[in-house]
Design a protein around this nucleic acid. Structure first.
Lengths: 244, 244
DNA sequence: AAGTGGTCTAGACCACTTG
DNA sequence: AAGTGGTCTAGACCACTTG
């Protein structure tokens, strides 16, 4: 049975035409592409359709455009490549082999650094939970969770045997945005024990610092510590091809 | 002198109108936004203009759209936040305080893992350079650079006192795309010495593995090792506000 | 003056979902 | 049948750059 041919809209055909010329090396960086009007003639389309193809490629950073000058193949941006951060806890939950252990739960007076990050004064209390997340009984993440008591007043009174604290937070006050930071750390003795790390060589950890906002307020701050051996950022280079 | 008011185009005003309702919490996730036709009436614009506002917000992931159903405020995506990877060597070069030291330069028979990553057989030779990059005499990056000799045949014959090997590669064969991976590692004794790391506690490193392509061919593979204390991924949380 | 991209209009036809 | 978003047309006016 032959694969059914998908009929592409005209703007997609024009995008493909341009990408083909760039990928083949025929139009290196800095090359001027056909103008909107020229594409209208080549493909017999209206200017809005030709424009859409150029604009979408410009939005992707593949082309750059300047009024009066034209459209050009953009310089490759190796300056700031970006990596997606997978949520390994969500992955474990979806695979059905997730469990967690709460090491501590209570109110503390916020350390100065945490208070500043959460935009709170150091004299007021905040709630703290220390949690170990496991996949198939193997620890995959150690979490220090600092919660804004103004937004989540009943945080300490919940029963976290059925749901995790993070799920409860999302239930009470949904996240509207989040900041992230990543650093490499050596685990503390407690973290090392809870994460089941023994050999010195495998003891390096990736720590993701995550600040979650509800509207204009910091809802919580989390320090997520992962054994480097169980946390890998980026595609599997062994099998990935060249993709633009 | 008053700040000159910038006249925003109409599609931008409509985008702002929608974002304001989302940011204020008036339209939580799942809320249906006004349809294209409704926005036409509200703002007295043509459908293409109303559509542009909705479409650009959908492209950003803020809205999601479905034919026959309407446009909806999207669920917040905390699944795969992404981080930009700064090029600290480029930053040092631009600040004018950059220098480098080449520890070794030569042809080697590729280790199996490197050969596979570069899509080459293990029997053919590849070129290798080991480089330490410094900013104000402080080592900031240790680099193992593996080069495809088919693309860069004269790699070993260059004089790298004026330009770095990476600059030479870009000169001979520009990069068309790149893959990246990030891992946390403990440095080897040699890396530790070259990076000037002494205290055990500060010895953790971030290793960025970067594969650069020229068209359909792997041009080079780099392992970039940074002391964690001099490599920080993400915004400065202390002073960043809530931004969508 | 001629060409470029940026914005916008007032229509059109389509596939899709719902009552 | 009425409404939705997806694609497309053939025009328009504008600010901008170049010869």
């Amino acid at each position: 049975m032959p694969v059914e041919a998908v009929k592409l809209p005209q703007f997609a055909l024009i995008k493909q035409y341009i990408k083909d010329h760039i990928d083949s090396g025929a139009w290196p960086s800095g090359t001027r592409t056909p103008s909107e009007n020229e594409l209208c003639s080549i493909f017999s389309v209206s200017r809005m359709t030709a424009r859409r193809a150029l604009q979408e490629l410009a939005d992707q950073g593949i082309l750059s455009r300047a009024p009066g000058l034209g459209t050009f193949v953009a310089e490759i941006e190796l300056q700031t490549p970006s990596l997606d951060i997978p949520n390994i806890v969500d992955q474990a939950i979806q695979s059905g082999s997730y469990s967690s252990r709460i090491l501590s739960l209570g109110a503390i007076s916020a350390p100065a650094k945490i208070a500043e990050l959460m935009h709170r004064s150091t004299v007021t209390e905040i709630y703290q939970a220390i949690i170990v997340h496991l996949d198939k009984q193997t620890p995959i993440q150690w979490q220090a969770l600092y919660v804004n008591p103004d937004l989540i007043p009943a945080f300490l009174k919940q029963n976290y045997t059925k749901i995790t604290p993070d799920v409860y937070l999302d239930w009470i006050s949904p996240v509207s945005s989040a900041d992230h930071q990543l650093e490499a750390v050596l685990p503390s003795p407690i973290q090392r024990r809870e994460l089941g790390l023994t050999a010195e060589s495998s003891a390096v950890c990736m720590q993701l610092n995550q600040r979650c906002w509800s509207q204009q307020t910091v809802r919580n701050y989390s320090q997520l510590v992962h054994p480097a051996s169980r946390f890998y950022l980026g595609p599997d280079l062994n099998y990935s091809g060249n993709s633009q």
